[in-house]
Design a protein around this nucleic acid. Structure first.
Lengths: 236, 236
DNA sequence: TAGTGGTCTAGACCACCAT
DNA sequence: TGGTGGTCTAGACCACTAC
């Protein structure tokens, strides 16, 4: 009952081994790693694929695999605000501004794949990091999938709450990122001068069957938040 | 001399087959596809992996593989402005504002992994789509890697130019996305009211050995441009 | 319980890089 | 030319879903 897959164990082992290595240091060959760890080469490749996707190493055909230069960031993954702040070494705090059940309306009905008359739970929160405002978050969830949510403690990670109490696992999300002029209310809540700009992220969270579970608009302070990631060419 | 890999051919075949299918339509099983196309199941999985990464299909263990609901966007990949606009169905046009050789300076030296006294080529361009301004682009390249670049036609795709004339293939890029208040010059060039906001993308392009080849800051009009992509949880 | 995707093996040949 | 990563095969067993 080896709960973790071999390639996952191997991935962590390789990460540990290459952790302190200078950029462009060659890794052992795939065949050597396979022999040393007593696994097949395909399994090694599976572990390596993950490391390449994470930006930890890069491959050059015919030459070898090498340690990537210190990476600003890994590739883009789905994270909760709580995880996001912890990754930045900040302590997240939440202030709930509103939590209610409302009619979905046209726009939410489309995003959540329901009807305009369906009930949705709306949670509006101000989220702070190390004591000062980071973003404003406006979450919408289909009411029938989260019974009793409004009675729960909404100051923590909503993703954790959905997973534990409602068996709702958000596995992927569609996101739209844009810049926006903040209105006076937003500026006041975020503690910035009126008329400033913010980073607006619209997200629809999907479960393992690609069914919408959550639609969230988050507005970040432009001076405190950015998005970092690595992209690759698909057809080289 | 089958230039394309089997899994790549298979990927395209599967894409074509599932193109018009309604969301959540099940695909044939991996074993069936393997048999039908005369390839091994591992090869089918390789093709499927690409489709999952692109957001075209999703897998449910024990149940099957299904067509994803109409996707707003595929996952994030590295594209040139020209490709980006074509993908949006817009016609890109370029106006070169400046093109010169300058001293790198501290910041560029760090980004391009060179010395502050090294020479860099700087190209500043206003890029339009369907006739109206879309973004301002400020590119820096190590001068010694792009001899004669300033004598070339800089109104097209710089990536194409680098590939064809200088054998510089940009395979990946580190990006930072943030919101920014436009200054008066930027606002004027982009044709928006002063004090508006824009989407600022800082990018460092890397070649196949993860060596910096290009550092670009692009400022997009907030009202005309957004970034759409799908993210997944790493550990489900 | 039957069938699915998830993982893994032990081979093999090819395309490419360095020398 | 020898060694690397890139691709592919034909099996096998496991974890999970649906019935």
């Amino acid at each position: 009952m080896a709960r973790t897959a071999k390639h996952e164990e191997l991935r962590l082992a390789l990460l540990a081994e290459t952790a302190g290595a200078p950029p462009h240091t060659p890794l052992p060959t795939e065949r050597e790693i396979a022999a040393r760890h007593g696994v097949s080469r395909n399994t090694v490749r599976q572990a390596m694929d993950a490391l390449v996707a994470a930006g930890s190493v890069y491959r050059v055909q015919g030459a070898g695999t090498f340690v990537s230069p210190a990476v600003v960031s890994k590739s883009l993954t789905l994270t909760s605000f709580t995880e996001d702040m912890h990754a930045r070494g900040l302590e997240p705090v939440t202030r709930v501004l509103a939590a209610e059940t409302v009619r979905a309306g046209r726009r939410m009905a489309e995003l959540l794949e329901t009807t305009p008359d369906a009930e949705v739970v709306r949670v509006c929160r101000l989220r702070l990091a190390d004591g000062s405002p980071m973003c404003l978050e406006n979450v919408h969830l289909p009411a029938h999938r989260v019974p009793g949510l409004l009675d729960a403690d909404l100051t923590g990670s909503l993703y954790d709450l959905l997973a534990e109490r409602h068996q709702l696992l958000i596995r992927s999300a569609r996101q739209i990122v844009r810049a926006a002029d903040l209105d006076d209310t937003e500026a006041a809540l975020l503690g910035v001068a009126p008329g400033g700009s913010g980073l607006r992220v619209e997200r629809v969270g999907l479960d393992h069957r690609e069914t919408p579970v959550e639609a969230t608009t988050t507005t970040y302070r432009a001076d405190r938040y950015d998005i970092r990631f690595t992209v690759r060419r698909t057809q080289p």
